[in-house]
């Protein structure tokens, strides 16, 4: 047997070792090798052709496709975050009730979140279908002109945002609901004794008490929205005319379609830096101030 002091000193490492091994293999290693690759002209086969120095990085700053796809990602984030926070809050206020109705509301609001991206996009491509899709069917029945949602440049992003809100709002809804259920009843009882009506209780008690949760949800949502890829790739494939192509799709195309591994790695790092900046900035902002816009 080992000497007890050896076991005492190093034994704990045994518990974290399996995770650390996987962490090193499938997170640290790709982070390091991606960074290394970004200085080379690397093909997908892994054969290093030549050392490029900062060439990939210089290319990146001069490549309009990087900036347009980054812009699309930011536009998507700006369009999707407000509804994903506000609708989630409204849903939580509505569904915070007991009994069968509460169960049904919680089920309906959250159900889409458990579906795979592909199922969601199959359904919504069908809903947006010109001619006999649900939305256009209703538009024409109401006497309006139909819209080719996914093939019109300034409509496609809106269509993707609507689908995304429907699909993922349920997660933020659950976060709000959990926060609501954590507010002690006594607070409301005290307010009621002081004569506060329902509207006052909502604006003076509930919403202020939810501000910390709102901060958390906004941070999580911004980071999640920046990672947009699945829905857009499956619904529009970045089109029409690249009008919806997000930065992750450009990384994917650079690496797996154009086989420019080094270049794709450089773009990945640019994108990673943006995510870290947004997350840290938001965290500072919200942990510094007590109140946040609901």
């Amino acid at each position: 047997m080992q000497r007890p002091d050896w076991k005492q000193r190093w034994g704990g490492l045994f518990f974290v070792a399996p995770f650390l091994l996987l962490f090193a293999l499938f997170m640290l290693w790709p982070i390091a090798s991606g960074f290394w690759n970004s200085f080379f002209n690397t093909s997908l086969a892994g054969v290093k052709h030549e050392f490029l120095g900062l060439q990939n990085w210089r290319d990146l700053f001069g490549d309009p496709a990087v900036w347009s796809s980054l812009k699309n990602t930011l536009v998507f984030t700006a369009m999707s975050t407000p509804p994903l926070v506000i609708i989630a809050l409204i849903m939580a206020l509505l569904a915070n009730r007991k009994g069968l109705l509460g169960w049904l509301l919680r089920f309906s609001y959250f159900a889409p979140f458990v579906l795979p991206a592909t199922v969601v996009t199959l359904i919504w491509v069908w809903i947006y279908q010109p001619g006999f899709g649900l939305v256009n069917g209703l538009l024409t029945a109401g006497g309006f002109a139909e819209i080719d949602w996914l093939n019109t440049e300034n409509r496609a992003m809106l269509a993707v945002v609507i689908t995304t809100v429907w699909w993922t709002v349920g997660f933020n809804f659950l976060l709000y609901l959990a926060a609501l259920q954590g507010i002690p009843t006594q607070v409301y009882e005290a307010a009621a004794i002081d004569g506060a009506n329902g509207r006052q209780q909502l604006f003076r008690i509930t919403l202020p008490l939810l501000s910390r949760t709102t901060g958390l949800i906004v941070v999580l949502q911004l980071v999640a929205s920046l990672k947009i890829f699945d829905q857009i790739y499956l619904m529009t494939n970045g089109g029409p005319n690249y009008a919806t192509r997000p930065i992750i799709q450009y990384i994917y195309e650079s690496g797996f379609t154009s086989y420019r591994i080094g270049y794709a790695s450089a773009i990945s790092y640019l994108f990673f830096a943006i995510i870290v900046i947004v997350a840290v900035a938001q965290f500072k902002l919200f942990s510094g101030r007590g109140e946040a816009a609901a």
Partner: peptide, 16 residues
């Protein structure tokens, strides 16, 4: 590591 989006690792991870 919580901050690292798996999406940025796809290219080196596929090589690996």
């Amino acid at each position: 590591g919580i901050l690292v989006p798996p999406q940025v690792l796809i290219v080196p991870l596929f090589q690996e």
